[in-house]
Amino acid sequence: MTENIKRLSRDALAERVARDIPEGAYVNLGIGAPTRVANYLPADREIFLQSENGLLGMGPAPASGDEDPELINAGKEPVTLLEGGAFFHHGDSFAMMRGGHLDICVLGAFQVSTTGDLANWHTGAPDAIPAVGGAMDLAIGAKQVFVMMDLLTKTGESKLVRRCTYPLTGIGCVDRIYSDLAVIDLGPGGPEVVEMVEGLDLETLRAMTGVDLQLKEVRR
């Protein structure tokens, strides 16, 4: 049955996340796949992108030759500043996160638990060099935390789990998962499927994840 499932590509998923970001939102996009969301933000909405290294009103990558080594994003790639944008120091930047001033952050994940615990900074492998950056601050600070990930690992294990086995980034912090297979809300009522991709049904999704998913409101 699974051969009929129309999984979303990385770009289609980024476009899907972008659709849910409203006008006026202050948003931090994590390093990696979440950065792609910026490419799909509707042009008719004013949305403020924050970067942890001290800018608000982040614009797209500059034209080749216009890069400035002192104007970069959290991934240390060259970016631009929109008209009305601002620079600030790290104390202010993390006050924006920790102080609950950011409306949305979009993060990647190794695992998310059904109660919204997030694991995305460390595999726990003994030879791994741990690096956390701003992940823990974003996870507990933003008003809404969206996770963007493939629902299954390359070997087919669910990344939505009852209990994370990887080291945690934050407890009970994830509000919604945007995955290649489904959008899932994590609320007090447990995980609820907001939408599924074409060719997928709830029973198959339950079997894939091993999680007792309920339907919230299916909009296909």
Binding site: G91, S93, M97, G134, M136
Partner: peptide, 8 residues
Amino acid sequence: LVPQGNLA
């Protein structure tokens, strides 16, 4: 290792 905001 310190979370970036805690470092700040």
